[in-house]
Structures are given as structure tokens and as C-alpha cells.
Design a protein around this nucleic acid. Structure first.
Lengths: 218, 218
DNA sequence: CTGTGCCTACCGCATTTGAGTGATGCCGGC
DNA sequence: GCCGGCATCACTCAAATGCGGTAGGCACAG
């Protein structure tokens, strides 16, 4: 909701990128934009943190490379967000593997753009995140959505209907007896179902099952 | 990477929207686009499913209103994806509450755009999803990201560092002993930590803890 | 100095859970 | 009709877990 009119002061941007050529390229382009103002350029996370105290005002957006030498961008994210809770971080990288994306988002990134995109996209992402958005490259957005999808692999057809219901109860954090009550069954029956579920899903404890459920496959 | 050149056949789009005026407005606009072809217009989920068999080719994208009379868009999503697994669904609505968004994504939506946006945005979303993207309005994207964030509420400060580590182990589906091994502790120590965690987080079983963790507070 | 909280570790006990075995009845395919 | 899968219930046994207490060492605040 905060203003972003042409009369607004340029957005304070920090750029962390280890490749000197790329850094030059990006900063050249981004700094030329009237809406932006590069207040910090760093080639590593360490350099970034060192330069931070020199700034009069904290950057509003940090464009952070994931694959940095030394402390990776991913690793320094928590500290960055701790020092600058109100600063938006956009990850910038060639990696589009689910795990890195997941880690970045969990650690407080508000955007994730890939490096194979036109510079205009990069600029758009920076502006977008400053406006309260969450810019993500196509592939990244899909990965993110994949985290929510049911992954109809195992369950569909594998587990019988009753077993599904029992599983549901377990997922809700209930014990065998409570599940039995909910379904109007004998606790022993539930126990049998649970055992069969374990066998079918290849796990051997409630914890494992719930862990799996929470992660990949619902 | 799939082609989207001007020589490509127009994208087959289905539009499900209960408000006749809006439906008219959207279809007028979208159908005028050379890249798009509205093959189905429906005012309800029921009408959509009825008209489906009449089509020569299934729609490639469905623009689905969330707040439909009768079977809501949200409720009909699973069936839609079951019938048309390869069709991309973009939710279209005025609602931006986290729960509805979460439900939609879990049920297979690949996009979620709000209704307060210019028509060009709508068109862009349809094209984007067809290209393998995941178009989301600003507010929606933020909600989605919020699902990954640590929710610094409870855990931060509430649980000690050691307890965090133990919790992590439990979340990974490990037993007490395995957690102990991982952290180089006595199983008894882990048990003590677990007890304290339960007390602090107000739960009384592993299942409850993991369930909570999976749901609200990651 | 004292209290408080954390980390560590142990004891004991009741309950829950994982794992094995068996049994009954229903249903559907071969 | 037989076999396999499913749902139901039962019994046993051992391991894991939940719950209560105790206790020494450490660090920090009052």
C-alpha cells in the first residue's frame, strides 16, 4: 500500500553477487533505472555485512546470489533478516532445485528469480517485491506450488478407503483409541489398519508417517 | 519451452463465473484476444461439467471462480482435475484469505488471481499458466510465501536452542534414540528435552506435535 | 548470594505403540 | 468354488513413549 509514485525517492537496493562481471552488468543496468538506487555492492555475504554499518539508511531490497563463495547466500539469509527485518530479499541464482528454493523461502526470502532472465525481469522483480509482491520465475513458482499438491502417487488406490480415514485421524494428531472413537471402531481394528498402512507406505512409526505426510506426499 | 508463437492455435479456455455481467465482460475481453479461444462458458460448476462432454477438445486452461453458487469452485476442483488432469486451473476470486488459497493450491490449482485487477492481468495469467507458470496476484503470492516462513511466534525464544534441535529431529520422523545419536546425547536427555517441549508447546504426544508442526506453525 | 533457567542424565511406572498371529465374514475375479 | 484383498476384532510380547521426580553443573540477573 505504501506509495510508489514517480515522485518517491528511489528504492535503496543492495546487490550481492560474486561474479565481478555479472555484478557490474547488473549494477550498471539497475542503477541506471530512475526508480532504483544501488546503495551497496558486495561480492560476498561477508563483504555485505561489513559494508552494512556504513550505510545511512538500510537497503529496502537485497538482491542476493544463492551461490556465494564462503557463507552462501542461503546461509546468510537468516542473519540478514535478523539484522534487517524490514528489508525484502530476492534470491537470484541459476539453481532452481526444489530444496534450495524451499530453504530460501523458509529463511525469509520474498522473491526468487533465476539468472537466465532478461534484465527487465530483474528490475521488475525488485520493484514488485518492494510493492509487497513475491516475484518468482516461472519454474520457481511451479516448484512452490508443487509443495502444496497432494502428490497423488501413493495414496490414490494404494490405501483403501478405511485406511485413508485412519490415516486422516493420525495426521490430525490423534492416538489409536481416539481414531477408533471417531470412526466408531474397536481400537484393535484401528491398530490393524495402522499396521497395514505402515506396510503399504513403507514406514515403521507414527513419527515417520507424519513426517512424510508433512513433506512430500500427502 | 513449448511453443507459444503467433502461429500456434489459440489456447482453449473455459470460463466459469456465476455473475452474468462479469462473465460477459470477461468472455468479451478474453475471446477477443487472438491467443485465446473461449470454448466453454458456465455459470456454475454443474453447468461446466455438463458442457464438458460436448467439447471436441478439452480446455487447456480453466478460469474458475471460487465463490460459485451450489458446488463451489473450490469443491469442484478435485473432480475437475480428476477429469482433466492436464488442464491448468486458475482460480479467480475476490477472496484472498489464506485458507481458501491454501485449499485451492492443495487441490490442484496452478494459479490464483484476484478480481480487482485489470483485464490485461487476467489475460496474462491465463497465458502464463499455459506456459507452465503459476500466476498469482501480489497478495496471494505473499500468502503462499507465508506458508513457508518460520512463524517466529511460538518457537522463537520459547524453545531453547537445544530444544529446537530436538524438535527438528522429531519433525524428521526420528525416535528419541535416533535424535540422541544425531545430537550426541544420551537418550534420556533427549527424553527430558521432549518433555519440556511438550510442556512449552502445550501438546502431549508426538503425533500432536508433528500434526501441529505440519499445520499452523512450521 | 540466591533464584531461575538450561543442559545434562538417571529412575520408575503406566500407557501407547509396533509387530506377529489368528480368526471371521464379505466381496469380486478367475 | 477357491483365492486374494478388505474390514473387523482379539491376543501376546517387546519396545517406545508420556509423565513424574531427582540432581549436578553452568550461567546470568537481581
Amino acid at each position: 500500500m505504501s506509495a510508489a509514485f514517480s515522485t518517491t525517492a528511489p528504492l535503496r537496493l543492495a546487490l550481492v553477487e560474486d561474479d565481478p562481471e555479472l555484478r557490474q552488468l547488473y549494477s550498471d543496468y539497475l542503477c541506471r533505472q530512475p526508480e532504483l538506487s544501488c546503495v551497496l555492492l558486495a561480492g560476498s555475504a561477508e563483504a555485505f555485512f561489513e559494508q552494512l554499518p556504513d550505510l545511512l539508511q538500510a537497503p529496502q531490497v537485497v538482491l542476493l546470489d544463492v551461490g556465494l563463495p564462503g557463507r552462501s547466500g542461503l546461509d546468510s539469509l537468516p542473519r540478514l533478516k535478523q539484522l534487517l527485518p524490514d528489508t525484502e530479499v530476492v534470491m537470484h541464482t541459476v539453481f532452481d532445485d526444489p530444496d534450495r528454493i524451499y530453504q530460501a523461502l523458509c529463511r525469509g526470502a520474498s522473491g526468487y528469480v533465476l539468472k537466465n532472465q532478461p534484465l527487465a525481469e530483474l528490475k521488475a522483480a525488485v520493484l514488485e517485491v518492494a510493492r509487497g509482491g513475491a516475484p518468482m520465475s516461472r519454474a520457481v513458482a511451479r516448484q512452490v506450488l508443487a509443495h502444496f499438491k497432494p502428490t497423488p502417487t501413493a495414496q490414490a488406490g494404494l490405501l483403501s478407503e478405511r485406511e485413508q480415514q485412519v490415516l486422516e485421524g493420525m495426521v490430525d494428531g490423534l492416538g489409536d483409541k481416539q481414531v477408533a472413537t471417531r470412526l466408531g471402531l474397536s481400537p484393535d481394528t484401528v491398530r490393524t489398519h495402522v499396521k497395514n498402512i505402515y506396510r503399504k507406505l513403507q514406514v515403521s512409526s507414527r513419527a515417520e508417517l507424519l513426517s512424510r505426510h508433512a513433506k512430500g506426499q500427502l
